[in-house]
């Protein structure tokens, strides 16, 4: 793996690689070079299998991290390419022509993170959610508690108790507070 990155580093700009295991390495690449790197790794270096494509929301740094994980099945090596996107302009480059299965991942990222992939097949169609108009739910700033409180109502006739005071009342009602 080190040798492979060493060979490629003259032509592409890589960040500092993280060798998590002998067979797994993470490295950051430039968005403009991603397509060329993926094509070369697929066609020349035997990384023919797209294991997954997903995103991580680094909201503190105002960035999305796209992780393209590709696998060389003959040599049993997995390389994860990180691409950092500006959170305000979350647009990635589609790779569905390299791996048709990437279209599904991109459709999910569009829906769940709001990252657009122009040109990807059916990318604007609903994937899992139906009629969703709120913030994309997998973004860190989407507040699940506030959403459920606004959207759903408590069942009528159901009381909500503060666990601490309720347990005190139910279990230790006959004892003074703090006694066992």
């Amino acid at each position: 793996m080190r040798e492979l990155l060493y060979r490629l580093k003259d032509r592409y700009h890589f960040g500092t690689p993280t060798f998590q295991r002998d067979d797994l390495c993470f490295v950051t690449v430039k968005r403009s070079e991603l397509r060329a790197i993926l094509t070369e790794l697929r066609d020349v270096e035997g990384f023919t299998h797209l294991t997954l494509l997903t995103a991580v929301d680094w909201i503190e740094e105002q960035q999305f991290q796209l992780t393209y994980m590709i696998n060389n099945r003959e040599a049993n090596l997995t390389l994860a390419l990180r691409v950092m996107l500006d959170r305000e302009d979350a647009t990635g480059d589609t790779i569905h022509d390299l791996w048709p299965t990437a279209a599904t991942y991109q459709r999910e990222l569009r829906e769940m993170f709001g990252i657009n992939f122009p040109g990807s097949p059916r990318v604007d169609e609903e994937f899992i959610l139906e009629g969703w108009t709120d913030l994309p739910p997998y973004r860190r700033d989407f507040d699940t508690l506030a959403y459920s409180q606004q959207t759903y109502h408590d069942r009528p006739g159901r009381e909500t108790h503060d666990p601490k005071t309720h347990m005190q009342k139910v279990l230790y009602a006959d004892y003074p507070k703090g006694a066992k």
Binding site: T18, Q20, T51, L52, V56, M69, T78, A80
Partner: peptide
Amino acid sequence: RGETYIKGESSRGEYGYYLV
């Protein structure tokens, strides 16, 4: 801070977890 990917052979194929 770190990230990893663990995989195994399930009855349907490669099953993996990506943890950050």
